[in-house]
Design a binder for these strands. Structure first.
Lengths: 140, 140
DNA sequence: CTTTAGTAGACTATTTTGGTCTATTAAGGA
DNA sequence: TCCTTAATAGACCAAAATAGTCTACTAAAG
């Protein structure tokens, strides 16, 4: 398995660091890759994907880099995961009925659709701002 | 991806058919494989896994087969998915802190732990009896 | 003692994951 | 105008997971 692969995990770490270091200048991926111990060439592909999804903006050339396209409160983790994992839902047949050609009435579909909804509801409800909170106090 | 692979999908279809056809005699996998259009040898491996997990009981030899080990109301979909996908949680680092050796305080972990909980809560709350309801009326 | 059906485990093809490599384009600064 | 920095594009690749298959064996019914 994984619903959440290194793509989402690395991607979220990138976004949190961009949120932390947000300012007037864009942030180059090389520094993020070093700080986060993520292969830079791999990270650059993830950043390009997030840019295509409208989550990041970039500036090329010397002193260039990436910055968040929106405020952290306005970036849902769902949009990040969907962009990086490249799929709209848990099961293909949830979207595309043609895949489950055989049985007209699929009795397992409601279970998986419900799971899909539970996952999406959770991820939609968490923003980058929530994730980027410096310290989470578990003792409360 | 998938959190839910053919293992869980085929497995749930097997369990629903076993629930439907429950009676005095055990049900042979061959008939289920034909009805559900699932490769029999593959299905037999899934059934063996579900037996090892305590979800199914079996009888060998002619007229043998499988039956549910418990009532459908007492079989959670979570136990089925966990048995067949063979993992206890979404992320290894949720269970095993040794994997995330680098950063002492991981800021992405709360997000993924929350997702893991959302998934497990949902799957724990759905039983085979819920899944095996003959017709689900979506029009309500 | 033959047939049916579960059991055990090695084996395999395909896809996905997690990258790498090379080359190019754009912008800043000397 | 070069030189350097850094994003962009896309082919490439190794390892792991997925989705099976194959063979041989064991147990029970008739």
């Amino acid at each position: 398995m994984s619903l959440i692969t290194t793509r989402s995990r690395y991607g979220l770490r990138l976004l949190i660091e961009l949120a932390d270091r947000a300012g007037s200048a864009p942030i180059d991926l090389g520094s993020v890759a070093r700080n986060q111990d993520i292969p830079e060439l791999y990270l650059s592909k993830l950043a390009a994907t997030l840019k295509a999804a409208g989550v990041l903006r970039s500036e090329r050339g010397a002193k260039g880099g990436y910055r968040l396209a929106r405020r952290p409160e306005d970036i849902s983790i769902l949009s990040v995961v969907e962009a990086l994992e490249g799929r709209s839902s848990l099961l293909e047949c949830t979207d595309d009925p043609a895949i489950c050609a055989r049985s007209g009435e699929c009795r397992t579909l409601p279970v998986w659709s419900g799971l899909d909804k539970a996952i999406n509801d959770y991820l939609r409800g968490v923003s980058l701002a929530d994730a980027a909170v410096a310290v989470i106090d578990y003792s409360i």
